[in-house]
Design a protein around this nucleic acid. Structure first.
Lengths: 241, 241
DNA sequence: GCGCTCCTTACGAAACACGGACGTCGGACC
DNA sequence: GGTCCGACGTCCGTGTTTCGTAAGGAGCGC
């Protein structure tokens, strides 16, 4: 329990983790950014919702620390929008005692929350904790299996050489499958891993799997690559092709 | 969104998760235990540190919900000792505003904390979340015996190399047998271990064993792998093949 | 032969996966 | 600013798979 601020490397990657701090109160923002900076993170800041979205788009942070109360667009909405653009862990800052908000935050998909006033130390611990469990695997190198190839950096996917036009979610889903061939995942697993949150209607996963099949499989009605495991979920089967 | 109190079976496990609740206040303890029970967990209780350690030793819980303030031995120490005996996730209960304590708790190794007063819903969400993260590594390694192989992560089973198409229950049943070769189990045991509940018609087990035999045995009428122990139940006999 | 246990089969009910369709929300384009 | 379009999430009807139970027959032990 000596030096809590030991510099941290991003999980799996060989660069420092980027954190985006969103708060309209400069004091809070300053303090938070300061501590995270000293803890060895690359910190970016935004003081309202729209700015946060732009910054997130530009800098692709590994984690977002987000105040629940923001002028204009509140934290929940920002969180939702961030999530819609791809899986990114979010830590919510809430006023003490906003019980309802906290539960709400968790349901919307915050990975954790910290109540104000908080000690910076606590925040840093939280950030480390969330980052640690967010992505042990890098997910930036090209992948290929069963005639399907995915290039995460270029955000392009091909099937037998021909390009697939996938949406964001479809791409993330396919990437995840390629990263874990032969393994069975529940819808819940996929929701957590691909969408980035633990709650929500699981039929969403079903629908996206169907759409992905429609683009990847020869005969979507009799899928070979993405097989369904009855009563469990789905499994990517590279050998199926 | 989602029903928060859906009974839970941990992924890959073949029984309901056990939770140990430690609190010196009977009221709190009662409430917490009640909600977890209704959420489908097997709940055990202890009202002080030493008792908690004993209970943990006896019952090997999958998760411990621990009050930070305990008479005699405080939560931090209990947490530390629990951890020393083996990896078990811990959720701390803290009084609101014990900022220092919360940080301390996380550093000592609590996986999460909930501040009092808390909503039962929040607690259950936390418990589910922590369990989901911690349990998948139990019972996931591939097993093989008597020409039969089972891969829990892929959810596939083979017999002499050829794939078996098993239903969910059949798969769980076979996995359980493979994990405990040579031992005899009563239908009651199997019901509890594989199905996760203690009631219900035991002929259900009979029928599922029969169906499993139909897919695994060379001659289902004269089973070699899954043998009947008259008056007792069944036994998986890897050498039978 | 008798009593009990186990096997086998059949069937209704429930759970599940799928496809289609719809409403909403942003972003792009005019 | 207004309009169109694509992505996304949700809902519902349908067909299929799986599950649990009941009931009669066979087998085992005595």
């Amino acid at each position: 329990m000596q030096q809590p601020y030991e510099p941290v490397k991003a999980p799996g990657a060989d660069r420092t983790a980027r954190v985006l701090v969103v708060d309209d109160d400069p004091t809070v923002s300053e303090v938070v950014a300061g501590y995270l900076d000293r803890a060895g993170y690359l910190v970016d800041r935004a003081d309202d919702g729209p700015t946060a979205l732009v910054r997130a788009e530009e800098h692709r942070p590994d984690l977002v620390v987000l105040d629940l109360m923001l002028p204009g667009m509140d934290g929940l909405e920002v969180c939702g929008r961030l999530r819609r653009r791809g899986p990114v862990p979010v830590i919510m800052l809430t006023a003490r005692g906003d019980e309802e908000d906290r539960v709400l935050g968790l349901e919307v998909g915050a990975d954790d929350y910290v109540t104000k006033p908080f000690s910076p130390r606590e925040l840093v611990l939280r950030v480390e904790s969330v980052l640690r469990r967010s992505r042990p695997d890098a997910g930036t190198r090209p992948l290929r299996a069963g005639g399907v190839a995915v290039d995460p950096t270029a955000r392009r996917a091909t099937r037998d050489g021909v390009e697939l036009s996938l949406t964001l979610r479809e791409f993330d889903l396919l990437s995840f499958f390629l990263r874990h061939p032969g393994r069975a995942f529940s819808r819940q697993d996929l929701m957590r891993e691909v969408w980035g949150w633990d709650f929500g209607d699981l039929s969403t996963v079903t629908v996206h799997v169907r759409r992905l099949r429609g683009k990847v499989e020869d005969d979507p009605a009799r899928p070979l690559l993405i097989q369904t495991v009855w009563g469990v979920g789905y499994r990517f089967e590279p050998g199926g092709e």
